[in-house]
């Protein structure tokens, strides 16, 4: 049993009032309480960016690593102890920019982890520069005459790269986000959740109102196994046309399933044995 009090730390969030991070945090804690995630069964990794501070406010074992590198840390945790629920909290800047390589390979290899992208279309901790998901033409501190570069869709990139669970959700929709987090964690394989998160301080277009007015839930009969349709849908991003929901969900062998030694007990709980090494040394004679 996990209660909200169990998850509380002595530290209060230092995000700006109204920041999308609050509701992502809330949705995660609600999911943790509902599912009993605690320090015996769950671990988190975080990126560097405003979102990464989540580790200080959530009493779950975590690694707050380096900018863009949260995913390989999560993968290492999962391989060493595959019984843990592993969550990665990453930003659009860190993990689409500096960590883009890790992202596509994490999707390709289908590690059994849940990835929450705090996608605010900006580098905000460094006070508002353009990121890989900033819309073309939008002026930022690093692109005062408008962002010349086209953004990409993290969800479409994830589908193209081989992710097996891909969703998009608005950060203010706590209830749905909580449900998706739970589904993502239960999913065997990598789950990518692109969370549309307003930066209330630096982003003047992608506000709460903007997302409330422009997001459209996927139809109830959406076929989550149609990869091509999922990719096309994930590419849609415009006024009155930001689809949200679970685009894609299929069962495929996970990274961990390829290791026969991970069938049962986690690696870290198997007593270390070295019998048999003598035979190997002999084979060098």
């Amino acid at each position: 049993m996990t209660t909200l009090a169990d998850l509380a730390t002595p530290h209060q969030p230092n995000w700006c009032p109204g920041c999308g991070n609050y509701t992502i945090w809330a949705a995660f804690k609600n999911a943790a309480v509902e599912q009993g995630w605690d320090n015996t069964n769950t671990a988190m990794t975080a990126d560097i960016g405003c979102n990464g501070h989540i580790v200080n406010f959530t009493k779950i074992n975590s690694v707050e690593g380096l900018h863009g590198r949260a995913l390989p840390v999560a993968e290492g945790i999962k391989m060493a102890n595959h019984k843990l629920n592993v969550f990665s909290f990453i930003g659009d800047g860190g993990c689409m920019g500096e960590g883009g390589n890790h992202f596509i390979h994490a999707c390709r290899r289908n590690h059994d982890i849940t990835v929450v992208i705090h996608d605010n279309e900006l580098y905000s901790l460094t006070t508002g520069q353009t990121s890989p998901t900033t819309q073309q033409g939008y002026p930022t501190k690093s692109t005062p005459f408008g962002n010349p570069d086209k953004p990409f869709s993290p969800a479409a990139l994830a589908i193209a790269s081989g992710a097996t669970f891909v969703a998009r959700v608005y950060s203010g929709d706590i209830k749905n986000l909580k449900e998706i987090l739970i589904k993502a964690n239960k999913h065997k394989g990598i789950a990518i959740i692109d969370v549309l998160q307003p930066c209330v301080t630096f982003h003047k277009v992608c506000t709460h109102t903007f997302y409330q007015q422009n997001t459209t839930p996927l139809p109830d009969d959406w076929d989550r196994t149609d990869k091509a349709a999922a990719f096309m849908k994930a590419m849609e991003f415009g006024e009155n046309d930001i689809p949200v929901g679970i685009f894609y969900e299929v069962e495929k062998p996970t990274n961990e399933s390829h290791f026969p030694q991970l069938k049962q007990t986690p690696i870290v709980k198997i007593p270390i044995k070295r019998d048999g090494l003598k035979e190997i040394l002999k084979s060098y004679s």
Partner: peptide, 30 residues
């Protein structure tokens, strides 16, 4: 020899990932 001795060898996408994975595994106790 990984299966015989119950350890994991993983080929990562680059050396940056290699060391981050190794840190993750050590964090989990390996």
């Amino acid at each position: 020899h990984q299966e015989e001795f119950n350890y994991i060898y993983k080929q990562p996408e680059d050396e940056i990932a290699a060391m981050n994975m190794a840190i993750g595994a050590a964090f989990a106790g390996a």
